[in-house]
Design a protein around this nucleic acid. Structure first.
Length: 134
DNA sequence: GCCAACGTTGGC
DNA sequence: GCCAACGTTGGC
């Protein structure tokens, strides 16, 4: 079991829409490092869902439902997608500000590599974030 | 709206 | 293979 975090601009694809639709093909990733992370996802892995830009907070948790397969939105089969299903909404969104202020999260990839859109979380980081959100 | 970070492209 | 130019992301 591994833990991940994915980013989405709420204007492009929001948590609310994810809940409403009940499943998403997480496609459109066009960055090798993010793609490599997608390829490592296994069904059952837990994924925190971060709203970037306007909200800047983790808003919920999803679960990997289908491991990586060629991205249907890409011309080139080297790009990958996974399927995610909603698991639970956070009671309280965990803001970027909170994350920055928490010494337990000082090495989180979200802060270290601000532009990466699919990143692994350490189990300890995942636990801290889940506790903050619930 | 600006800009830092960083990835990609293309000329040399 | 280097690097300047350019595009994108995402925080501020």
């Amino acid at each position: 079991m591994q833990y991940w975090l994915v980013k989405s601009e709420p204007d492009a694809y929001s948590w609310a829409r994810f809940i409403k639709e009940g499943r998403v093909c997480w496609d459109g990733v066009r960055n090798y490092q993010a793609r490599n992370n997608l390829q490592l996802m296994q069904p059952g892995d837990l994924v925190l869902f971060y709203h970037s830009v306007s909200e800047k907070a983790i808003v919920g948790m999803a679960k990997v439902d289908k491991a990586a397969y060629p991205d249907p939105s890409a011309d080139d089969p080297k790009w990958m997608a996974v399927d995610l299903v909603p698991e639970s909404a956070f009671k309280t969104p965990v803001t970027l500000d909170q994350i920055k202020k928490d010494p337990r999260l000082e090495n989180i990839a979200l802060l270290r590599q601000s532009r990466l859109s699919v990143m692994p979380l350490k189990a300890e980081e995942f636990d801290v974030l889940l506790a903050l959100g619930n």
